[in-house]
């Protein structure tokens, strides 16, 4: 069952269409357009704001980005303290 298909070319073969640079560029551009559109939708759809800050324009957009950035940075800083090699708990031979 293991690896029954031939391995990937990895040296410039055509590969899967999802891996083509053009596809990836298109996904980035498409993604950016969607991000702008969902943020601009705030102009036409009024959201209920349980807290005053949630009434700001594009709240969930900037808040989502900022919260994730904060969590990634906190994780990165904590990682310097908490990370150990993955055989850390292995019993000594």
């Amino acid at each position: 069952m293991r690896n029954t298909l031939p391995p990937a070319d990895g040296r410039g073969g055509a590969g899967h269409w999802l891996t083509w640079p053009g596809t990836i560029r298109g996904l980035w551009w498409g993604g950016c357009v969607v991000l702008v559109l969902v943020t601009l939708a705030d102009l036409v759809i009024h959201r209920h704001a349980p807290v005053p800050i949630a009434d700001t324009f594009g709240f969930a957009s900037w808040f989502g980005f900022a919260a994730c950035a904060a969590m990634v940075i906190v994780a990165k800083v904590l990682g310097w303290v908490l990370k150990r090699r993955d055989e850390f708990y292995e019993p000594r031979a």
Binding site: G31, L35, D42, F59, A60, F63, G64, F65
Partner: peptide, 13 residues
């Protein structure tokens, strides 16, 4: 809309 904004910008992050 709120969830789409939140999640898509999380993806961007």
């Amino acid at each position: 809309l709120e969830m789409l904004q939140l999640l898509l910008f999380s993806g961007l992050a």
